[in-house]
Computed example of a mutant assay.
Amino acid sequence: MQRVEHVMGFPVSLRIDDEGDLTEAADAVFAWLRETDARFSPFIPGSEVSRYGRGELADGELSADLREVLGLCERYRAATGGAFDVRLPGRGFDPCAVVKGWSVQRAAGLLSAAGARRFCLNAGGDVVVSGGPWRVGIRHPEAADQVCAVLAVTDAAVATSGRYERGDHILDGRTGRPATGLLSLTVLAPTLTEADATATAAFALGAEGPAWAAARPGCEVFAVDAERSVVRTPGFAIAQPFACRNAETLAV
Rank of each mutant, 00 (worst) to 15 (best):
P141H: 04
D21Y: 08
F30H: 10
A144E: 15
M8N: 08
V104S: 08
G90D: 12
E74S: 01
L88M: 13
L188M: 08
L22R: 14
D37G: 01
T233L: 03
E74M: 00
C148F: 11
D18C: 11
A157H: 09
E48F: 09
T200A: 14
W102Q: 05
C96T: 11
G206T: 14
L72I: 09
A211C: 06
R75H: 05
S184M: 14
T36E: 13
L171H: 11
G218F: 12
R139M: 02
E220N: 01
E68Y: 13
V12E: 01
V224W: 04
E227H: 07
G176R: 03
L121Y: 13
E227L: 14
A143G: 00
A197Y: 02
W32I: 00
V230W: 03
L183T: 04
V153C: 01
P141S: 04
S41V: 03
A83S: 15
D27N: 06
R166N: 12
C120M: 14
G124E: 00
W134G: 05
D172N: 14
G81R: 03
S161Q: 01
P89V: 03
T186E: 04
R232Q: 03
G92P: 09
R91N: 03
V49G: 08
Q240V: 13
G132S: 05
D94G: 09
W212I: 03
D126Y: 10
D145A: 11
A202P: 14
I138C: 02
D145K: 01
R163M: 06
G20H: 01
A226I: 02
G92T: 10
R67A: 02
W134Y: 15
D145G: 09
E68P: 15
A83F: 10
A237P: 00
V147S: 09
F222H: 15
S103P: 11
F43I: 02
E227M: 11
T36S: 15
T198I: 11
L14T: 08
T23R: 13
P210Q: 06
V136S: 15
V224L: 06
A211N: 04
L121S: 06
D168A: 11
E35G: 15
L33V: 04
L192H: 05
A157M: 14
Q105Y: 02
A226F: 01
A226R: 06
V224Q: 14
A116Q: 04
V7L: 13
Q146F: 00
A204I: 07
T160W: 00
G162A: 06
H169A: 11
A214I: 09
R174D: 08
M8D: 05
I170A: 12
A144S: 15
E227K: 13
Q105C: 00
M8C: 09
A113T: 10
A189Q: 14
